[in-house]
């Protein structure tokens, strides 16, 4: 008896689930059919593409310039310290090496602890 009751409940659930999906579909279909969309002409899209490509080119030039300036600055500092104050140069090398080893060790320990 209980099994039959469960079966009926399941059937009702399936049916109401299906009805809900159907109602969602009907609602979405009305948006698809009746919400107005104005599609611009081809020329508008072409202009948009040209404009976007120009923006991308400008951004690329800007990024490359910034990268080159920073790289040149870092290189100048490294070369300056190497030839004029070698103690600072080697101290920096040591510090960077310790930092890298420390960073990866902590990450490894964290990963091991998590697993």
């Amino acid at each position: 008896m209980d099994e039959r009751k469960e079966e009926i409940e399941k059937e009702n659930l399936d049916e109401s689930f299906f009805t809900t999906i159907k109602e969602i579909e009907v609602g979405l279909e009305s948006v698809e059919q009746y919400a107005p969309v104005y599609t611009p002409n081809l020329e508008w899209f072409e202009n948009m593409v040209v404009e976007k490509k120009q923006q991308l080119r400008k951004k690329l030039i800007f990024d490359v310039s910034i990268f080159s300036i920073v790289a040149l600055l870092v290189l100048s500092v490294v070369l300056f310290t190497l030839y004029n104050i070698p103690v600072v140069f080697f101290a920096l090398q040591g510090l960077v090496a310790i930092f890298i080893i420390g960073y990866f060790s902590i990450r490894l320990i964290k990963q091991v602890k998590e697993t």
């Binding site: 599609t39 611009p40 002409n41 081809l42 020329e43 899209f45 072409e46 948009m48 593409v49 040209v50 490509k53």
Partner: peptide, 9 residues
């Protein structure tokens, strides 16, 4: 650019 424009259109 025309191909892009047609795809978008």
């Amino acid at each position: 650019k025309s191909a892009f424009a047609m795809l978008f259109h």
